[in-house]
Computed example of a mutant assay.
Amino acid sequence: MTRVRFAAAAALSLALSSPALATPPLPEAWQSTLNRDNPLVGKIWSVGKQAFVTPEALAGDIASARFVLAGETHDNADHHLRQAWIVSALTEAGRKPAVVFEMISADEAGALKSYLAGTPKNASAMGKALKWKERGWPDWAMYQPIADAALAAGLPMAPGDLSRETVKRFRKEGLGALGKGIAESWGLETPLPAAGQETLKQDLRDGHCGLLPEPAVEAMVPVQRARDASFADGLIANATADGAVLIAGRGHVRGDMAVPWYLRARAPEASIRIVAMVEAEQGQSDPADYLPAPGVYDYLWFTPKAERPDKCEELKARFGKKS
């Protein structure tokens, strides 16, 4: 996109945006430090309208959807603050959706229920109750604003992921690890489109920095598909009259192969909105550069990039020790 077209799209954004709603205040300061000077930072790009929209317009649109999928980069605190904003914006619009978390597996369902039964005033101790740190997720303080927003509005919260035992059993049992009839009811016996299948494989390769042998990639595909189907089931099973929100990694909310694919198969009448939190990269100021494929997301919400160690170097060191 040329600069002229980019500017024109920005100028038209108000005219093209959805009906605005009163919304909660946005976070006052960025938590992440890299690429704050990228002109995209803080802006929301509507993929369908090919224009920037205001937070109020975004709130107006997602308030009409049964399922809202908010995709993140796990260790970016700004992404979680905007996920919390989405939850609050929905409640201010009069919605009371359930909030389903990728990060909470079926193993923690009892602990989550017990914690919520204590009617906590905030979620400060929720991470400890769910063994958040022990299970390897980024600092609970990053995720707490989402849970606090849900608690403040009295929204139900629910796990989305498979149990650890189920994932282990996949090695021997494949889809049978889910239990009788589950794979069929979740849509897992229907193959992904060829492009989606290959994209999923490439994501697994890239996510492991090209270090996995191809048989290992092939073995991980059904597990990854089952996790996406589990998240979709969590949304359907826990949805209130006002639907549900998913908090998950950005790859899990891709419309072409992940959670939305299973939702459309099982609930074709349900409206879905996909909001992807995206880290702005140095020298990339065209929103089109951040779309991996057409129809993957409905909105891109740009933030600075979080500082992090080189994951591939860490993986290389880990694989080297194992070898």
Rank of each mutant, 00 (worst) to 15 (best):
L130D: 01
A141V: 12
V167Q: 12
W140V: 10
N122W: 07
W85K: 03
W132D: 12
G94F: 02
M103T: 12
K180F: 13
G136A: 03
A106M: 02
L90V: 04
A152Q: 13
A93C: 09
G48P: 02
S185N: 13
D61C: 03
P138H: 01
W132K: 10
A106C: 00
I86H: 00
R164P: 10
A63M: 01
G127Q: 03
V68R: 12
R66E: 15
A123E: 04
L178D: 05
P156Q: 05
L151R: 02
M142I: 11
E189F: 02
K49T: 09
A59P: 00
E189I: 05
G71L: 12
V99A: 07
I62L: 14
S46Y: 04
Q50H: 02
D61A: 15
F52V: 04
L188A: 05
P97M: 08
A147Y: 06
P159K: 13
L112D: 11
R169P: 01
S64D: 11
P159W: 12
G71Q: 12
E165T: 13
A111G: 13
P55R: 06
P145V: 04
K121T: 14
G136Q: 03
K96M: 13
A89P: 10
A70L: 14
A147M: 09
P138I: 11
D107P: 10
L155M: 06
G176K: 11
E173M: 05
W137M: 09
S124E: 12
M142Q: 14
Y115P: 00
A89Q: 08
G48Q: 09
V100D: 06
M103K: 02
Y115A: 15
A141I: 07
E56Y: 00
F67E: 09
I182H: 05
H80P: 11
F52W: 07
Q144V: 02
T119N: 15
A98W: 10
T119P: 02
F170M: 13
E165K: 14
N76K: 08
A147E: 09
H79D: 05
E72L: 03
A123F: 06
D75Q: 10
S105L: 01
V167N: 05
P138M: 08
E173P: 00
S124C: 00
A70E: 01
K131W: 11
A84Y: 08
A70P: 00
K121L: 14
P156W: 13
W186A: 08
V53P: 05
Q50V: 01
N122Q: 07
A158V: 01
E189N: 15
T119Q: 15
H80I: 05
Y115S: 11
A70K: 00
A141N: 04
M142S: 07
A109I: 04
D148N: 15
L58I: 09
Q144L: 00
L155I: 04
T91D: 08
E134H: 01
L116D: 05
L69C: 02
T91N: 08
G187K: 03
R164H: 15
A149T: 04
I104P: 01
G110M: 12
Y143R: 08
I62Y: 03
T73M: 09
S114W: 01
G181L: 13
G179I: 15
N76L: 11
I146K: 02
S46C: 15
A153W: 11
A63L: 02
Q83I: 08
A125Q: 15
S163E: 10
P55C: 07
G94W: 03
L90A: 10
L130H: 03
G181M: 13
G127Y: 07
R171L: 13
